[in-house]
């Protein structure tokens, strides 16, 4: 029943140049990552620090330009549109929520003002009364009730969870089709994280918003996401339906990642995977699979070229030579 993707990225690559004239280095932050977002679905990108997941979000939000690759919004190639106008209209449809609600809200403005800004900038409402009504609607949608009380508060008068709700309301103000959520709950207290995830799930279901959920917390990705994309050192190594992927991870890195998640329900430590080494430096990533040096199943060809994606039944795919040609 899945229709066309609302937002699709093909082979997104981002290289940053670091260092001075004498020590120029290329940081290969993201390499050939493809991703599709569908209305009313959540796609999670999971990975450790430095895996490139936030860079993917920034490219999709058009905060940074990809080095290469293509992006399609409703089948329209958006990277060809350069002007401020088209960028504004893109941002009116694709919104972003950041990790830290303590720094993403301007401390000198009241909540009401924060929510009015996008309404005015995107000409969603112009009359004073209309704007006020819309601000109250937004606050109610994110369960900040009574809305009139919250509208006059400053960010410092709110808890972390309430601030993140304001950030979500701000994203909703423009009635977006896509929300990119970059670690939206990782700075919040554990007891209120689920409240935020449940709120986003409600928006997904009721407003058919497509979500990209970026996280290092696989358990929360399982809870919230329909599909999963696993990133390692700038590469997307495995993807597919969340449940199927987590119950039967194929890529050796995915297996390692899942085995490392603390989980008392799993019972006493089963099937230990011995972990070797650390994530490679992104300036030193070669042409091969970035996991090769740590992989227990490494083959000679793994160090030469990144394996192509092998497509498997059940919307699964994996980039690993162990499955190539199967």
């Amino acid at each position: 029943m899945q229709t066309e993707p609302i937002l699709e990225a093909r082979d997104l690559t981002k290289h940053f140049v670091a260092g001075g004239a004498m020590s120029r280095q290329t940081v290969k932050a993201v390499q050939n990552v493809s991703i599709k977002l569908f209305p009313g679905k959540v796609t999670a990108v999971v990975g450790e620090s430095g895996s490139g997941k936030s860079t993917v979000v920034r490219m999709l939000a058009r905060l940074i330009e990809p080095t290469s690759g293509q992006m399609f919004f409703k089948q329209h190639n958006v990277l060809e549109d350069k002007g401020r106008r088209t960028l504004l209209s893109y941002r009116g449809q694709v919104q972003i929520i950041f990790q830290d609600p303590f720094s993403s809200l301007n401390p000198v403005h009241r909540v009401g003002y924060v929510l009015q800004r996008p309404l005015r900038i995107h000409h969603i409402a112009n009359q004073k009364r209309q704007i006020q009504q819309r601000v109250h609607d937004l606050l109610q949608q994110v369960s900040l009730i009574p809305a009139a009380d919250y509208a006059v508060k400053y960010p410092h008068q709110l808890s972390g969870g309430q601030r993140q709700r304001v950030a979500i309301a701000r994203a909703l103000a423009v009635e977006p089709k896509v929300i990119l959520a970059d670690e939206p709950v990782s700075m919040l207290d554990v007891s209120i994280r689920l409240g935020i995830l449940n709120l986003m799930a409600k928006l997904r279901d009721e407003q058919r918003i497509a979500f990209l959920y970026v996280t290092h917390d696989i358990a929360s990705a399982r809870y919230f996401a329909d599909e999963l994309l696993v990133m390692y050192a700038g590469h997307a190594v495995e993807g597919g339906d969340t449940e199927s992927l987590l119950q039967d991870p194929l890529h050796p890195y995915t297996q390692l990642l899942i085995s490392a998640v603390p989980d008392p329900a799993r019972g006493l430590r089963t099937a230990e995977i011995k972990i070797k080494g650390e994530i490679p430096s992104l300036t030193a990533v070669g042409d091969g699979c970035p996991f090769a040096d740590r992989c227990p199943h490494v083959l000679p060809k793994c160090r030469e070229a990144m394996p192509p994606a092998t497509v498997l039944p059940g919307k699964r795919w994996v980039r690993c030579y162990l499955f190539d040609g199967k």
Binding site: V190, S191, I192, R193, L194, G195, N198, I218, A219, S220, R222, Y223, E243, L246, I258, V261, D263, A265, R266
Partner: peptide
């Protein structure tokens, strides 16, 4: 949330 076992709705606090 757990990565194993049945998936269920959770409420937090």
């Amino acid at each position: 949330p757990s990565i194993h076992g049945a998936k269920q709705e959770m409420l937090g606090i």
